[in-house]
Design a protein around this nucleic acid. Sequence first.
DNA 1: ATTATCTATAGATCTATAGATAATGC
DNA 2: ATTATCTATAGATCTATAGATAATGC
Lengths: 245, 245
Amino acid sequence: MPKPPAVPKSAAARKRPPQRRAAPDAALADSGKAARSRRTQARILDAAEELFSHHGIYGVSIRDIADRAGVDTALLHYHFANKDGIYEAVMLRRAGDVNEARKRAMDDYARKSGGKPSIEGIVRAYMQPVFERLRTGGRGFNNYAALIALANNSALWGGGTVKEYFDPAVQRLVDLLRLALPKAREEDLYWGYQFLSGALTLSYSRNARIEGLSHGRCRANDYAAIEPRLVAWCAAGLRALGACR
Amino acid sequence: MPKPPAVPKSAAARKRPPQRRAAPDAALADSGKAARSRRTQARILDAAEELFSHHGIYGVSIRDIADRAGVDTALLHYHFANKDGIYEAVMLRRAGDVNEARKRAMDDYARKSGGKPSIEGIVRAYMQPVFERLRTGGRGFNNYAALIALANNSALWGGGTVKEYFDPAVQRLVDLLRLALPKAREEDLYWGYQFLSGALTLSYSRNARIEGLSHGRCRANDYAAIEPRLVAWCAAGLRALGACR
DNA sequence: ATTATCTATAGATCTATAGATAATGC
DNA sequence: ATTATCTATAGATCTATAGATAATGC
């Protein structure tokens, strides 16, 4: 976080204690050189994910990440070439899992509902994998989600390969909605997705404004409260959009 | 944008031509030292607004802003002390105007509708001043809106004094919604605002993802298409939230 | 022999300030 | 006399790489 360098780091403070090659942890079943490398990379990505999600990609320096991961900056260049490489690796690490789960959930629901899926059912299936991971995926997934929210409201989104993971799940969502809302205009289905997406991402962003506004009645991370309300909200909105032609 | 220093700026390239004190523009009615100072500050804020909205506060250096404004970095420190000072000045410059307009629009609508405001009417009144400025306020306001969208999905929001401008308009909105939805739970009014806010800010963010997803059917800045749809969407959602107790 | 990691450092860039200078205001 | 602006520069920080070293793999 090169930002408000709280205390301008003096050359002395900057100096990390010389790092001794940590002895390979014998207790770890998954030992060996390759495994150790993978664990190091994961530590680097965990650190980057956390820092990026709080400060954005330009609010974090390679050294910040290295310090938090407990390694030298040179190692980050070795594994990921440069900062963009780290950012992309962070974005991609969880992209496949969550979007495969979305497609699976929508496919399952489509099958289960026969030819008559409900809007609520479709929206719920699309969102459920994310909310599930927000509740049970620990700090890592919550950091990732906040980072996605940040990217979603910026010009950064289209940049990388992320959309190749996210877009197919969205298209599957729109395809199902088209079935359930046969009278809706094609463009309204996409506007509907856009509004849904905005409300969803704000819900797992780092913005906790609602807590102050509501005088503590709502907690920003109360996903048990958010999920059913957001499903109801989006379903009603989609129905209104689909009807007003 | 200190990021991908496209071409690493050499010391030579960095050197700006020595800046001669531009002769005061005699054609300008608004001359005089103070006026000139105000115009310079406005140029600096315009540059900062544009750059911040594209790259975020940490993706822009003071020198980037100075270069775009055509002044030296020392002048930015003279007028705004430091980068945070510039950022806050940018955020506050248009905050009063748009939120006063919101409150006025809601007050006018409340009066006009007697004791029976409709959800659509309330939501429209809240959003209208923003959409109006997006359409007619030129590049400056569009940059500002994109910056607000960026801040809204990050941890930066609460930081400054911005919320003192934005929060009262939100509370007025919630107060009117409470009248129109007497059966709604108090917390649902705030969740409703959160979802509305997410959909609204994404709509004026720099994310143009919808254009690709919809194969060109929707244009990200087509506010004439967005405004009525978003009003219908949010009204339906609020009604659903307010009813499901 | 190869791979993962650390040491040391070059070169660029950033923020911030001290001090000079030119215009305006009184 | 004051204010707005420019010149020059200090000091910190950033990214990236060359080269050394220690562990693993064959």
